[in-house]
C-alpha cells in the first residue's frame, strides 16, 4: 500500500500530505504512507516501551510471595499482571509497523534494545513496592498521558488502555508507603530509605536534559511527543513533593526549594553519569534482568511447541 502511494505521488508530496495530517491532528494508521524515519522512531520507542513493561514486572515480582498479607498480595499480583498486558498491547502496536515480534524480543535479550533504566535497580525491602508504585508508576503516568494523543493511532489507543489501568498502580504504591510512614519508627525508616533510593532514578526516567536530547525536536514535530523531558520532569516534581511532605517523608535533595514566583520547585543537579552507566548496562541489576528474561524464553520454548502441536492435531481431527 506504501507502494501504491509512492507510484501516485512524489516523495515531496507524500511528506507534505503526511505532515499536513499531523498538523491537523489526523492520526496516522498502519497502512498509511509514513516517512521511514517516523516508522523507525516509533519502532524504537514503542518496543523500548514494551520491553520496559515486561522487564518492569521483575522488581515487583520479587515481592509477590513475600507480601505482608493476602490483600497486598492480591493487589500486587493484579498490578504485575497489568504490566504484562501493557507489554502485550505495545508489542502488538510495534507489529503494526511491520516489526517482527520475535526479533523485537530477541533484540532485548541480546542487549541491542534498551528499556527504562529504572528497572535495573534492586527492590530490597517491602517499602520498595510502595516507592515503585508511587514514584515509578507515577513518573510513567506523567509520560504516558500525553502519549494518548500521539499521532500514531495504534500507539495512542494502546496508551489509552494503559493509562486507564495505571491509575490504581500509583495509588496502591502510595497506600503502601503512607502506611509504613505512619507505622513504627523502623517502618518509617524503611519508607524513607525507599524514597531515598528511588527518588533520583525516578527523575532520570524522563530522560536526559532537553539540551542533550537531540531527537526530541523531530518527535515533537511529528506529535509523537507533546512535552519535552524537562517539562515532564518538572511536572512530576511539582506534584510529588507535596505527596511526600503529607506523609512526613523527606525528598532526598538538599537543594530542593519552592520558587514562589514561578510556582515550581527547583531541584539539585541530577547525576547523569550514573544514568548513562546504567543505560550502558552497568547498573546493579542489568545482567540479572536480561538473564531472567532470556531463561523465561528458553524455558518456555517447549510450551510454545506443545501448543502448536496440539493446535495442529486438533485441526487434523476436524479435517477428518
Amino acid at each position: 500500500m506504501q507502494l501504491a502511494m509512492e507510484q501516485k505521488y512524489s516523495q515531496e508530496e507524500l511528506e507534505k500530505r503526511f505532515q499536513d495530517k499531523i498538523d491537523n491532528d489526523i492520526k496516522i494508521e498502519p497502512n498509511d504512507w509514513m516517512p521511514d524515519a517516523y516508522r523507525k522512531t516509533l519502532v524504537r520507542q514503542i518496543s523500548q516501551h514494551a520491553h520496559s513493561e515486561i522487564v518492569g514486572m521483575l522488581p515487583e515480582g520479587n515481592w509477590i510471595t513475600r507480601a505482608p498479607n493476602l490483600r497486598r498480595k492480591a493487589v500486587l499480583l493484579a498490578k504485575v499482571q497489568d504490566e504484562a498486558g501493557h507489554g502485550l498491547y505495545l508489542y502488538s502496536a510495534v507489529e503494526t509497523l511491520g516489526a517482527d515480534r520475535e526479533e523485537t524480543i530477541d533484540d532485548l535479550h541480546s542487549g541491542k534494545a534498551k528499556y527504562s533504566s529504572i528497572f535495573n535497580y534492586p527492590t530490597l525491602t517491602w517499602a520498595d513496592m510502595g516507592a515503585v508504585g508511587w514514584l515509578v508508576d507515577g513518573a510513567a503516568i506523567m509520560n504516558q498521558v500525553p502519549l494518548c494523543r500521539c499521532s500514531y493511532g495504534p500507539y495512542a489507543r494502546a496508551m489509552v488502555r494503559v493509562c486507564k489501568e495505571e491509575s490504581f498502580h500509583q495509588r496502591q504504591g502510595y497506600e503502601i508507603i503512607a502506611k509504613l510512614a505512619q507505622g513504627t519508627p523502623e517502618q518509617k525508616e524503611m519508607a524513607q530509605d525507599a524514597l531515598n533510593r528511588f527518588w533520583w532514578p525516578s527523575l532520570m526516567m524522563f530522560g536526559p536534559n532537553d539540551d542533550d536530547s537531540p531527537n526530541s525536536a523531530l518527535s515533537i514535530k511529528w506529535k509523537i511527543k507533546r512535552f519535552s523531558n524537562d517539562e515532564l520532569r518538572q511536572q512530576f516534581i511539582d506534584v510529588t513533593v507535596p505527596q511526600a511532605e503529607l506523609i512526613g517523608l523527606t525528598v532526598p535533595d538538599k537543594d530542593l526549594k519552592f520558587n514562589e514566583e514561578t510556582g515550581h520547585y527547583e531541584h539539585g543537579p541530577i547525576n547523569w553519569d550514573e544514568f548513562w552507566e546504567v543505560v550502558k548496562g552497568n547498573g546493579p541489576c542489568n545482567e540479572d534482568r536480561i538473564n531472567t528474561r532470556r531463561s523465561a524464553k528458553e524455558n518456555g520454548e517447549w510450551v510454545r511447541a506443545a501448543a502448536n502441536a496440539f493446535a495442529e492435531k486438533r485441526k487434523m481431527r476436524v479435517a477428518v
Partner: peptide, 23 residues
C-alpha cells in the same frame, strides 16, 4: 480492541479474556 498471538482460536479467546477483559 487489538490483537494478540495464539496457537489456535481457542487459545486466542482465552488470551483475549486475560488481556482485554480484566475489568
Amino acid at each position: 480492541v487489538g490483537s494478540l498471538r495464539a496457537a489456535d482460536a481457542e487459545m486466542a479467546i482465552e488470551n483475549a479474556r486475560d488481556v482485554y477483559t480484566r475489568r
